[in-house]
Design a protein around this nucleic acid. Structure first.
Lengths: 341, 341
DNA sequence: TCGCATGATGTAAGCTATTACATAGATGCA
DNA sequence: TGCATCTATGTAATAGCTTACATCATGCGA
């Protein structure tokens, strides 16, 4: 590993060029108010002339502050996270900080590694998705005084900060809507719930609606599968073999719903006349398929932005947890209808 | 802005705990071969016991090396970039480096800002998408000895490194295929080409095919629009008013193609019997719409991985430009057919 | 046994910024 | 005028690590 020389100008060079001390230059850059107008001008000229830019490492070590925040997301290849993270990043940058991002592929172990790496790289705050993870992770972070914001979910722990929404509630409302339309026999295609609280609570919400309506929540046929069109299709075909065959299949997200609709069409079933299907997240895909998916809209961009603002205020010293719950909204399109009589 | 105290263990703490000098600890961490087995063990124990992790800033400044690479992409909210960047990031991390990422929203000015910011943050190499940008940017980077890898495109400049593909060639092949099927009247819906070489070369490829076939390339009706389903639909409706009405509308990417198909259906046109439509990129969306989109497959993940490997070797001192051209592939689905006779 | 090459480890300089504290000059008020 | 206060600036300590160079012990060949 060769070392490549970079002889960039230093604070001292600027100080010499401007005929002042390094302290004054540093102040010009960080607390301009504390420097008189004339001096400031002279210094800034020197900065421009030399194309000076402070050395990040030196600044970090001297100020004991890096200005870095980290975000670990399950995957970037999913419009919902992409939108949220993009908004998060723009807000972070607008506040003169830097974002580190990594994707865990929905794998807890990878997530832990990535959190550790980011902390080693100087992350002073972390954005994490959902709540499911080893408590040791939170211990690790809090021991180092690194604030965490949870997004895409809410938590009942009053000590944790989050910017999220109840995955359960909207799911329950959607199921209630289906019950009101006359559905009694439910199926549910979900992402794996074991380490994914978002997916799990969506299932729980649907079950709650059944319970509230006096139906047996355990009668809801549940299949867990990978997040892909192909897997969703397979799950749908499998579910059709159930007895009784469900009149509605709720899906944990829109990709699964779209796959289910495709599979229904392969089976020669008409959606929603023969079978209803619902999604979650409201991604673009859900308007492209025919029929368009009845789903739950989540304000991903807003969530990303607010999560950034929240994390920044925690990093800057806010001591009380900040909890922001966002509203979701049921989007009625064409894939949910009355059951066949 | 409060400063939050972090009294983390330092190299010296580890050295004391292990009864060696800081130099030995440093060597254990960076060049383990140079330390004897017994000492190494003792040091590593101390590292574990104290949960030591090197201070990033200090290391960067002492070694004059940050291990950071930057990537500026047009948008994360696009599966093609998301996939590529995710692969890029995984490769970077696997090599013990750190990735900074930002999205420019297809805006050159933002891109410049972000490049500057990343350099100020210690980026030692940059991944950039496509070739269109102010030459000053390249000057800025080369002056600082920061290698650049261009992705998603190729360049004829022998001094630039890239991992990409010819946006033009596949587009030309697709148009030739359409010509062979009998099409003579072409329309093209593109993303804005002014600052987007990928979009531009795709158009040029189509024109080339027309020219080669003895047709007038300027007769191809071109509409440029934003990257969204809605805009694509509007563009399609507008294009239908053209005289002669095209028998095929090629689209610069799959999102535009899907929007066009939706619009065709709104007009009561059957695709491909009444009008053919093609896409580019091969994203999931293109298999969800009915009819599925005939498009061009691009190996995004592979490109991301290779771009990372390329950039790493440049950062590590490789002096000759590295140019890797990847193959694309036409995926024949159902949206391209013979023209109506 | 001596001299020397080799390998392991230690010493201490150096990297670049921030910032507490010191200093000097200017201002205000009695 | 004299003293306290304030503002602008400088001095120098400091942060945590890497690494060139120095030192020391060991083993080997002559």
């Amino acid at each position: 590993m060769e070392t490549r020389k970079r002889n960039l100008p230093t604070l001292e060079d600027v100080a010499n060029a401007a005929g002042v001390s390094t302290a004054t230059v540093s102040r010009c850059l960080n607390e301009p108010d504390k420097v008189s107008g004339g001096t400031r001008e002279r210094v800034m000229e020197a900065v421009d002339k030399l194309h000076y830019s402070p050395n990040f490492g030196a600044r970090a070590i001297a100020a004991n502050r890096t200005g870095i925040v980290g975000a670990v997301i399950p995957t970037m290849v999913n419009a919902i996270f992409a939108r949220g993270v993009e908004a998060f990043q723009k807000t972070i940058v607008a506040n003169k900080k830097t974002m580190l991002v990594a994707s865990s592929s929905y794998d807890r172990t990878q997530e832990i590694d990535q959190i550790r790496t980011m902390v080693a790289r100087g992350a002073e705050g972390m954005l994490l998705i959902g709540t499911d993870r080893d408590p040791e992770v939170y211990a690790f972070l809090s021991q180092r005084n690194i604030p965490v914001v949870i997004a895409w979910a809410r938590t009942s722990d009053p000590n944790q900060s989050f910017v999220g929404f109840s995955n359960k509630d909207a799911s329950r409302l959607l199921a209630e809507r289906a019950i009101a339309l006359g559905h009694r026999s439910f199926g549910y295609i979900s992402a794996y719930t074991a380490m994914n609280d978002r997916a799990r609570y969506r299932v729980i919400g649907a079950r709650e609606a059944l319970t509230n309506a006096g139906l047996d929540p355990d009668a809801m046929h549940l299949i867990e599968t990978k997040y892909s069109l192909k897997c969703a299709r397979a799950a749908f075909h499998q579910m059709l073999k159930a007895n009784p065959r469900p009149s509605i299949i709720m899906c944990g997200n829109d990709v699964l719903a779209v796959g289910a609709i495709q599979a229904a069409q392969e089976e020669g079933l008409h959606v929603p006349d023969d079978i209803s299907i619902t999604g979650y997240d409201d991604i673009e895909l859900s308007t492209v398929i025919e029929p368009a998916v009845t789903t739950v809209h989540v304000p991903h961009r807003k969530m990303g932005r607010l999560a950034a603002e929240t994390l920044l205020s925690l990093v800057d010293g806010a001591s009380n947890p900040i909890q922001i719950e966002l509203e979701t909204q049921i989007i009625e399109r064409d894939s949910l209808g009355k059951p066949k009589t």
